[in-house]
Design a protein around this nucleic acid. Structure first.
Lengths: 248, 248
DNA sequence: TCAACTCTGACGCCGCGTTACTGTCG
DNA sequence: ACGACAGTAACGCGGCGTCAGAGTTG
């Protein structure tokens, strides 16, 4: 019995694998049975079984069938290199999956907090968060989080949904009516603008600079949540602030 | 320009995606352009762009295209559930990847330590380690590791490669020559057997019991590294030990 | 007319799962 | 002659990459 070798079904059951898998290994040249019966049945030798066990072990380490074949067949591929490279890959996977977990937790947090918030809204929040993580340094993010807590969710909501839109609209009106940036009304708008920015940045110049890049990036990417004329407004307010500094 | 919509190439460049991907999204009904030109060119509206951005965001969270479609199309699939479920999946991924890292590090350690050790040898070590992790409790493993350090690598090697094989061979000879398990020579072999087991188990009865299951498992799985008559030897030695206890 | 773009259609990847149909063994 | 096996061949999954060949646009 042992001499003639095992057939696919028996081997599959013994190792805990599917017959199809064995067929596949044969097909790709990873494990071909030592012999065939007259009827063409695959007959696996003890050596084949050992090889199969090695294959399974290496598979559980996450190696691809091709890598396993190279490892077991070619002595010239250094196991050290293969394993070390693979280790680096898997480490990378862990990091990325962990990042995913973090972001998903944030999103889940938003969803649970705001009860029946819809996907789009949560996604907007998430997108902004991701953008922020790209544009601010970790310390700046820390500072911003601190400011946000001081201000409270209500105040933030008011500013984002009421005060900024109102201010932007006033700036647009002033710009379109051709008012001089140095004129008192526009100066007042500029003051208000700076006040709002300061309220969130906490006066940190690094954060204010980063915010500029952040806004420009969102604008350039054509984000429809950003007023397409935002750069005009910013230039206009910039002139107003410059004339103010000039006067002083 | 904005009214007629963007064509694939432009949209692809703007979002940072391939044209093929957009074709694919259209094919699977994830994102179909608002209109088509007379020549059949896909023309994407601003709404399409927003949707595409949402798609990309959800993709970066690791959701499948199908899940994304369901989330964005059907309001009846609760985002909470989808996200929470996915979060659980990704957490699982992290755990498994971390386990992989641990095992790979062990393997890499063996490879680096024994310089030019070949794959098979390292794999054997690894397989045994995995078997051990299944059969011993974490505390037992801790104990075993402690014992192994006390004994030193050299002593372990001697026992595994010389003393055990020698003892097993003597037991086989005694068994095959039909010696009475209660006879003094066999009693001595049993003493030696127990001494070797105690040297590694540290006398912990839980470990000794687990080791029995461990050996039997390896034997039943037909591992060619285990002497196929091992269970015979164990029964024989068991009798010897029993007769010893009976005498006492 | 030419380049740059667009279209559709089809195969390839990886590790098999899943039919579907035919042949062999006891 | 039947049922439990074996064989080969083929498509399918996910998310596109990558041709190939033909038509459109500026």
């Amino acid at each position: 019995m042992r001499q003639v070798g095992m057939r696919v079904g028996a081997l599959a059951k013994r190792i805990g694998i599917s017959v199809r898998a064995l067929h596949h290994y044969d097909q790709v040249g990873l494990l071909s049975p030592a012999r065939r019966s007259e009827a063409g049945y695959r007959l696996y030798s003890d050596g084949d079984i050992r090889r199969l066990q090695q294959i399974r072990s290496l598979q559980q380490l996450g190696l691809s069938l091709e890598e396993i074949r190279d490892l077991l067949d070619n002595r010239h591929v250094a196991p050290l290199t293969v394993i070390d490279l693979h280790l680096a890959r898997v480490r990378q996977q862990v990091v990325q999956a962990q990042n995913l977990v973090d972001r998903l937790q944030q999103l889940a947090g938003h969803l649970h907090a705001s009860a029946c918030i819809d996907v789009e809204e949560a996604l907007q929040t998430l997108e902004v968060m991701q953008m922020m993580e790209q544009h601010y340094t970790p310390e700046q993010l820390e500072t911003l989080r601190g400011r946000a807590q001081e201000l409270g969710a209500e105040r933030i909501h008011t500013v984002e949904e009421v005060e900024w839109p109102t201010l932007i609209e006033q700036v647009r009106a002033a710009l379109d009516s051709g008012q001089d940036p140095a004129s008192p009304p526009v100066q007042q708008l500029a003051q208000r603008w700076m006040a709002l920015v300061r309220e969130f940045s906490g006066g940190d110049p690094g954060i204010e600079r980063a915010s500029m890049g952040f806004l420009r990036e969102m604008h350039d990417s054509g984000d429809p949540r950003i007023d397409p004329r935002m750069s005009e407004y910013m230039a206009y307010i910039g002139k107003a602030m410059a004339s103010n500094r000039g006067q002083k």
